[in-house]
């Protein structure tokens, strides 16, 4: 299993090729478009993340001690950004997720989207990703 740190480094590497913002966002849009949609029965108010201009849904499951995330949004850039986070955190042990730092978002120049002052819901999304991990961790011990 690849660690969160390794996956983050790969992501930073992947984004280092883009020379301007348009290329970078075109890539994020592609990621969003290619993300499998969340099944409708998970698109419930309980899975909806608050504080967002677009709808963002997040669902998590624990399988054999690892957390798997499934997410969707009706806005494509947010969906792409969520896709990045899911790619990094999905399939990791709860403890790793709880303690993971997000400085890779800074390195790829997308940290502005994680600011709690932006109304795109990503900051709440990160919090929710960690909350799921924390809950799974607490249930295990």
């Amino acid at each position: 299993m690849e660690s969160i740190v390794n996956k983050s480094e790969e992501l930073v590497d992947e984004f280092s090729f883009f020379e301007d913002w348009a290329d970078k966002y075109a890539h994020i849009i592609d990621l969003g478009k290619n993300m499998p949609p969340l099944e409708d029965h998970w698109k419930t108010p309980e899975h909806l993340i608050k504080g967002c201009q677009s709808n963002v849904w997040l669902h998590a499951e624990l399988k054999e001690g690892l957390v798997y995330y499934y997410a969707d949004s009706d806005a494509i850039i947010v969906k792409g950004l969520i896709g990045l986070l899911v790619r990094i955190f999905s399939g990791q042990p709860p403890a790793e997720i709880v303690h993971a730092d997000l400085s890779f978002m800074n390195q790829i120049g997308l940290q502005q989207h994680l600011s709690p002052t932006r109304s795109n819901g990503l900051a709440s999304m990160v919090k929710q990703i960690k909350m799921y991990a924390l809950a799974f961790q607490a249930n295990k011990s």
Partner: peptide
């Protein structure tokens, strides 16, 4: 197209 996506790209 979602309005939020347009807002993000115009900001760039």
């Amino acid at each position: 197209v979602h309005h939020q996506d347009l807002g993000i790209l115009l900001d760039q």
